[in-house]
Design a binder for these strands. Structure first.
Lengths: 141, 141
DNA sequence: GTATATGCAAAGGGTTTGCACGGTT
DNA sequence: AACCGTGCAAACCCTTTGCATATAC
């Protein structure tokens, strides 16, 4: 829905509408989540000529106007998400490397507590928790 | 206290005791927390010849045997902590860059909930939450 | 027409790795 | 004596930046 709402959002931020911008956004939405490199690959399925640095620059712009966010899931590249997808928290298993998602709602009581204690407001979509998944924590040494 | 307990811990893991190892561990403890580069600088106050790669290798070893942990606080280098210091969660303000700590206990109910829901056990010392601190969230646009 | 966005290539952090030497066990 | 750990330098990955050209407005 809301076909060209992203255009308005971009313009409101003082940015122009370009094919690359559109492709990056669409790719993030199509992938659900991905690293800059993965997003580039997806973009290049449509337009071969697009450059990695353009992807980086556009992810930055899209994040600034609030159309995407990113989370640091591993030690490597960050993962970008489209906003408006259902918000979730990443659980990263440091043993097997798996990543699962839980609904962001689980964290709400905790985040409320944090806010009232220290006035800190957390961007939930940014959260990545490290630890051990069910399989690895039961089979642990 | 417990002067040479770290030696036992290392040996139990099958590792040797070296001056570099000791210096890295001591530096982490003295600093409280720091990036590999900062740790190197601290180490070099005692032994100029120590190399960055040695710091990396030893942080990895020390983490493996459970003497230190690390958290990804910003987009840059990770921060290492000695274990046994009081465990805390980092609140990273994405606006002003400040980092504050809260006692890990605040998160316990949340983490228990997570465990029972998805079987995921979180390494609390690893947690870094991004968002806006009190100053920045009240003065926000 | 003007300011912004892009492509390209080079530079820049941070981290890892191969290898020969030196130290711990 | 055997093996692990270290220093050094090169390689690597991810990201940013300078500059000339192309494009949206």
């Amino acid at each position: 829905m809301a076909s060209a709402e992203w255009e308005t959002t971009l313009r409101r931020g003082g940015y122009r509408i370009t094919p690359q911008r559109q492709l990056v956004l669409e790719s993030v939405e199509r992938l659900g989540h991905g690293t800059p490199e993965e997003i580039l690959t997806e973009v290049q399925r449509t337009a071969t000529g697009v450059n990695l640095s353009t992807v980086y620059r556009n992810l930055e712009v899209l994040e600034e106007v609030g159309l995407v966010t990113h989370a640091h899931i591993g030690h490597g590249a960050p993962t970008y998400h489209s906003v408006g997808e259902h918000v979730h928290i990443h659980l990263v298993c440091d043993h097997c490397g798996s990543v699962e998602s839980v609904d962001a709602g689980v964290a709400d009581p905790f985040l409320d507590e944090l806010r009232s204690r220290s006035g800190f407001v957390t961007d939930v979509s940014h959260v990545a928790l490290h630890g051990a998944c069910r399989g690895c924590s039961t089979a642990s040494s």
